[in-house]
């Protein structure tokens, strides 16, 4: 996409240099202690909390003029959140943007990890609503910090126990708790548990920013990340039992789309870039036009 000239009224990437410096320090600390939630002085951003204020600040602190930015929201490049954040940085930083996972140097994401494997040198920035995995079990912040400090994570399994007792299986399907390099239990942000295996051993840097909660945490490249489970109820990365109706992909995470009020529905890849790329390479699904009759 075109390189917009940055708005002259703003510092590069909106935040002032001292703020970016402060955020970078938090990021470095987060990378040094994988999975540990580093407090930082989160700033007001020109968007409401819950729209990715944490992710945007981490992105702003990481951006350099040579970067190529991709923003996805639930896997899609063309939804409101993705479009507005991409335009925000195109205007305030003047960086190049892209929708292609392989070309991007920095990807800000809300609730998905791209299907295309990331490579070394890329940074994946997550938007995090609630960074504390123990929050809904233990409301006291002082207590949860103490539990992290002393590695008392039995409570996390109580949540999984409750799932099995009530539903017969671990019904937690997103924000599935993980243990990072054998130490900290971490909330991977509300990504589907289908994406959890991709957290582990990724060559890219993964950064997590929670604006309202004022926390940054990180996974350096090639960090071991294990999803919590029981011996007799092992972790399973689940997805809808269908193929993509547009590109025929069998192993990508799917969105269910209701097409009429007669029970009609289709399943499509939630990662739009992955899906369009496959279609461009001639892959076809149940409802897409056949390759040969591709006149339009």
């Amino acid at each position: 996409m075109n390189d917009a000239t940055p708005e002259p009224a703003y510092n590069f990437a909106y935040l002032d240099e001292q703020t970016k410096r402060m955020i970078r320090r938090a990021i470095l600390k987060g990378i040094a202690v994988p999975g540990y939630q580093v407090p930082f002085a989160s700033r007001e951003m020109p968007m409401p909390y819950g729209w990715g204020t944490g992710g945007v600040q981490v992105t702003a602190a990481c951006l350099v003029p040579e970067d190529r930015l991709k923003v996805i929201d639930q896997g899609a490049d063309d939804t409101t959140n993705a479009v507005s954040i991409r335009r925000f940085f195109a205007r305030t930083a003047g960086v190049a943007t892209t929708t292609r996972t392989t070309e991007a140097t920095l990807i800000q994401t809300r609730h998905r990890i791209p299907e295309t494997p990331l490579h070394a040198g890329q940074i994946l920035v997550y938007q995090v609503p609630i960074p504390e995995p123990l929050r809904f079990l233990e409301p006291r912040e002082t207590e949860t910090r103490k539990m992290h400090e002393l590695e008392e994570y039995g409570l996390m399994h109580v949540k999984l126990y409750e799932d099995i007792a009530r539903h017969g299986q671990i019904a937690t399907s997103y924000a599935y708790p993980v243990k990072v390099s054998g130490r900290y239990v971490m909330d991977p942000s509300p990504i589907p548990k289908f994406d959890n295996p991709k957290l582990s051993g990724s060559p890219a840097i993964q950064l997590f920013g929670a604006g309202r909660e004022q926390r940054i945490y990180a996974l350096p490249p090639y960090t071991k990340v294990v999803s919590l489970d029981f011996d007799d109820h092992p972790f399973q990365a689940s997805k809808a039992a269908h193929d993509c109706d547009l590109c025929g992909a069998k192993a990508s995470y799917l969105d269910e789309v209701i097409t009429d009020d007669l029970g009609g529905r289709m399943f499509v890849c939630s990662d739009t870039d992955f899906c369009t790329d496959r279609q461009a390479h001639g892959k076809r699904g149940r409802v897409s036009a056949p390759v040969s009759g591709d006149a339009a």
Partner: peptide
């Protein structure tokens, strides 16, 4: 809970 806190991992 106490069992899980001391490391029981078999539901």
């Amino acid at each position: 809970e106490r069992l899980m806190a001391v490391g029981a991992r078999h539901y």
